[in-house]
Design a protein around this nucleic acid. Structure first.
Lengths: 222, 222
DNA sequence: ACCCAATTCAAACAGTAGTTTGAATTTAAC
DNA sequence: GTTAAATTCAAACTACTGTTTGAATTGGGT
């Protein structure tokens, strides 16, 4: 059955992509794991690039609307939310992905990490293009929480937050192993997500200030 | 002259590694840029892997002792430093790298970002092995600044901080272009470093707290 | 001028990548 | 049961990778 083959490829691909990254996962490794023929990837998906997109899309199409919904619900109840409230509205949508696929949350955040690290901005553009409005809604909600930050400062803070999140998730397997070996901590992706919230919230909400021993390092034109 | 060839390779390599990553930079691209013969890389460095190490080593051997010195100086004057003071002690050593090579600071932080993202823990182990004591000194200094955090919590916070730093730096070129286009900001790596300090400091120093709608996600064994 | 080691060079090697091909097979509709 | 489309398959193709080879060239010491 065709649908079966396609799904088997997606499942094997996301697993290997999350673990080894997109570049270091060959189509042969995927088709071997999925127990399908090598050519079936190009038959069903056209190219490796499109396969990667469909792997991500399977989660994004669930995740993004969920976030949008959560943010709207938060703002309805708290017109002036805290930073932590806004970022915590990501948690439920993330955990919901476990219903898309077994261990879906962990897979998605790792894929997101890989995508951001390896795709040199492609993923960013892809998300902006397909979910621009939802993205804007989220950014606006953060701005409501920290109105004292300029739009430019907010831009940087949000990308710092993305960096924190994405790097941690991409490295989550390694970090979990270290935490277990060195601190006897049994860690789950869910646990890491919750640990991240205070850090990111405090970071994004930090008071901006000019540097000490440095004449204005950022030039504002116009 | 041999030394010339070796240096030309290092210079071309770091440039291309920083821009495209280690995996996506071929030896042929490097030797073409350096205007040397393809085989000279293996002749002078043995392998691509060793070339990558020497590229990083050129900066690390300057950077790490400088950090150690800064931290010791800080603690001598402030036995109970603030988080921001500890992290700000990274700034001078970073900027000093501009004396190692033109634009050395930017090159180093990007290489560091690439190394952490692409080398699946190899770089982490390399640094731990070669600069273990200096690393420990820095971690201890951070712990002095936030004694209320457990060692395990500190471990996570520091890796969050690494993530923030590394991802931002690896993406710094793209982010700078966006900032210029969308916010008319002329950004330098130096400027980004200074912008990062409040975020990282606030994040690392944030009060840890158990999550709201989640029964203890992290299990402490023993 | 000679020699020997260091270095450079063009070429080939072995391995892997994504993709394409065309025949074989399966599937579903009539 | 026949037919036609959809799918699977083994194999080959093209392109690119890091590395090695052995000859040519260079440079410094005597």
């Amino acid at each position: 059955m065709a649908m079966d083959t396609k799904t088997q490829i997606l499942n094997a691909a996301e697993q290997l992509f999350a673990e080894h990254g997109f570049g270091d996962t060959s189509l042969r490794a995927i088709t071997t794991e999925a127990k399908v023929n090598l050519a079936s990837v190009n038959y069903h998906f056209g190219s490796k690039k499109q396969l990667i997109q469909e792997v991500l899309q399977r989660y994004l199409k669930v995740f993004m609307p969920q976030v949008d919904q959560q943010v709207k619900a938060l703002l309805a109840e708290h017109p002036q939310p805290s930073v932590e409230q806004v970022f915590t509205s990501l948690v439920k949508p993330l955990l919901l992905l476990n219903q898309v696929r077994p261990d879906g949350t962990a897979l998605f955040v790792r894929l997101l990490g890989r995508g951001y690290s390896e795709s040199q901005g492609h993923l960013r553009k892809y998300i902006t293009f397909h979910y621009g409005q939802m993205l804007k809604n989220f950014v606006d909600a953060v701005h409501l929480a920290v109105p004292e930050l300029s739009k430019a400062e907010l831009f940087w803070r949000l990308h710092f937050a993305i960096g924190t999140f994405v790097f941690t998730m991409a490295s989550s397997k390694a970090l979990s192993e270290i935490a277990l070996a060195d601190y006897q901590q049994q860690v789950t992706v869910e646990g890491i997500i919750h640990r991240l919230m205070p850090y990111i919230s405090a970071g994004v909400g930090a008071k901006a200030h000019v540097s000490m021993n440095q004449s204005n390092p950022v030039l504002e034109i116009a």
